[in-house]
Computed example of a mutant assay.
Amino acid sequence: MIPGLDRYKKKWNITTDPAIKPGLDSITAALKELGNPQKEGTYIHLAGSNGKGSTAAFLTAIFKEHHLSVGSFMSPHIEDLHDQIQLNGKPVTPDVLDQAMEQLANIRTLLTDFELLTAAAFLVFKNEQPDVIILEAGMGGRFDSTNVITPAVAIIPSVSLEHTNFLGPTIGDIAWHKAGVIKVHIPIIIGDLPEEAEAVIRKEAKKLTAPVVLPEGVPNVSLKLKGAHQQRNAMLAQAAAAHVLGDRFDAERADRGLAAAFIPNRFEEVAPNIFFDGAHNPASVEKLVETVKTELADRPIHVYVGILKDKDYITILRKLEEISDNFTFVDFPHERAMVAKNLYLESKGKVKTIQKVCDILPVLHKNEVALVTGSLYLLAEIRHLLINRQDTK
């Protein structure tokens, strides 16, 4: 479900394939019909379980400080499909996206919704000609529809268990999918990975004679994005930017970019005492818990949770129970959303309730610290409600 996409599909009479099928045949065929727009531009490809969005935000800020224009494609949405395709950190306008959709109306290849949006992103970038393009793989990497480019550099910030029904049950299986973004002779920059995952990545890199870069140290700047893991993401972005820029790289400009970087849904205080965080798997929730213990030490937290049913929700709940005994489980509209009652029954919280997302705003604004987490789709729904309420005031 990509909010806002149906409007364009209806306008241009575009039919999409409802089935999710692995492989790049369809997107490759469609792009060939469009003149292979993905072959133009300087790309940075991001794949990983967590850290992609933050690393992309750091990269965008660094390049903007170097007076370069930046295109980016990310998932999932924050509000709707327009913010998945960005130019210089701002969502693509409906007019610009409409031009791409008009071109897509003429192709014969049947695409899924995500493949359609990916193709639209490539057309937007071809039309707008940004200096650098940052692509974030949607799920996995090897068979993700973004994996049709040859990047200047690829980055894998992290690997952890996720989407196991699609990617496989082990860290090694998932790392194999992430390793699909490695290309012949192209540097691959990696974060602090589990030993099993790093071994898979290095094996693939050796086969393709791709240099493996493991940056060390931390940036000497204060970051708006909180948590020790963000220091590591900033370091990955700095190394990638230095590779792309070469002699044009300016360390002072890079530091200013890192200090200014911001991304929604990363321990974001959206209103006084209301925090959004897109942690949606055990590894990212663990980082969130560490950040809460540091930034909100000794403050009582009310946790609002909605989770997709293909996630390891039991482990996620156990980790969140380290910072709170007070939970509200939220039903939200998504075909993969877990029923809130199931979370309620599994929870060991001492105080727990169930809410529909449409009824959440009055509860959120109680006189307490509220932390909303578990799914980026949940955050998008609540953000939309917040914006609509402000617009009607």
Rank of each mutant, 00 (worst) to 15 (best):
T42R: 10
A210T: 06
M235I: 12
D192V: 06
Q84N: 13
E102P: 06
G168K: 09
K90H: 14
H66S: 14
L320M: 13
D325N: 14
I156A: 11
K356V: 02
H384K: 15
D312M: 03
S347I: 01
A242H: 11
R383M: 01
V351D: 08
K319T: 01
I2Y: 09
T109P: 05
E162C: 12
V200T: 13
V244I: 09
P211E: 15
I314D: 12
K207Q: 14
K393A: 15
K224G: 11
E368Y: 11
D312V: 02
R202G: 09
E346D: 08
R299D: 09
L258P: 00
I14R: 14
V153E: 00
P264M: 08
A175R: 05
K21P: 00
G374P: 00
I301K: 01
E33K: 14
L167W: 09
L117I: 12
E322T: 09
H77M: 02
E79K: 10
E128G: 03
L361Q: 07
K224A: 06
L81K: 12
L245T: 03
I189K: 07
L214K: 13
L364A: 05
I155M: 05
M235V: 11
I107F: 12
K11D: 00
A239V: 11
G51E: 07
K287R: 04
R318I: 01
S222C: 10
M139W: 03
V285N: 10
V339D: 15
E102S: 07
G349Y: 14
P22M: 03
A242Q: 15
E290F: 05
Q238T: 13
T146I: 06
A57V: 02
L386G: 14
N88Q: 07
A241I: 05
D25S: 13
A380I: 04
A154C: 14
L34V: 01
G51S: 08
E102G: 06
A260S: 12
Y8K: 00
D25H: 12
N265C: 11
L386F: 01
G374N: 07
D255W: 03
R318A: 08
D173W: 04
P37I: 05
F262P: 00
S284D: 03
A297D: 10
T150L: 13
A260C: 04
I134Y: 00
D144Y: 06
D98V: 15
A137Q: 12
E198A: 07
I316V: 15
F58N: 08
